[in-house]
Amino acid sequence: MSTLLLLLITGVGLGALYFLVASGLSLIYGLMGVLNFAHGSFLTLAGFLGWEVGRRVGDGTWGGLLAGMLVGLVVGALVAAVTELVFIRRLYQRHIEQVLVTVGLGLATVALFEGIWGTDPIRIAKPAWLGGTTDVLGASVPNDRWLLIGAAAVVLGLIVLFLRATPYGLVIRAGVENRTMVTALGIDVRRAFTVVFAIGGAAAGLGGVLASVYYGQVSAHQGTSLLIYAFIVTVIGGLGSLAGAAVASVLVAVIQQLANFYLGGTGDLAVVLALAAVLLVRPRGLLGKAAAR
């Protein structure tokens, strides 16, 4: 019982990490029809820069971690917005080229990160409490999971608030549903594109810093490997659906944890099977719209 509880809680923790990456991906795809292969690079760069700043503020302290998280948010948002403005916007309405450009950027930046920070993962220090565990009904849950769950919950809340209560949020929600009609109402939807990239980048940036806490290291490939799971989460949840991304993140991570423990380390395969099953039974994903516009 306590093992199952532990697996469930750690699953939700990992799901929180997936959500931080997948939320932006899903919003970007929903609004713009672009599958952003550079998203992992936003995460990796934020992870590295967050670590660089954090260790100078105070290696392994809460102050350092908070500074790192802040840097991660800002770096993620900035890099993503610049990517949209410089590379994506020029290819307005050319979705295949937009995807190809993000593929190129993803490959190129990972190589650049390797050049700067090396190919081997760098061990990082974290506040002592995060390395400990908390007893929940007999299950010793690693404390960093609470940080992940808390951060993802806050991000989810903030994104929902933004979408519900701001003018840009209104444009984005409408654009996810029918982008063409938004422009036909005289609204420059491209500005919403930049905003969505920035939001997604910020979430991914925070995810990058938290991923380094979760794995205890930063590496040039961290973003790429998380990106694949985030893609899977996004498709299972339904492209463009934030709620779908949240549900699918947890679902995928829990399946992965359970399969890893009970079925001899087959978590990755279980996730792929889940994806195949969802796509065959319900191609638009759990909470996706009937047809993308």
Binding site: L170, R173, A174, M181, V182, A184, G186
Partner: peptide, 30 residues
């Protein structure tokens, strides 16, 4: 498109194309 509309050309599309997930008030506000 948005520049054309901003010049004062309004469009009522075939099949309405209202934003189904938005409220009536939000549709109008947009």
């Amino acid at each position: 498109t948005h520049r054309i509309v901003q010049r004062g050309i309004a469009y009522v599309p075939e099949d309405r194309e209202v934003f189904g997930s938005l409220t009536v008030a939000e549709n109008l506000r947009l």
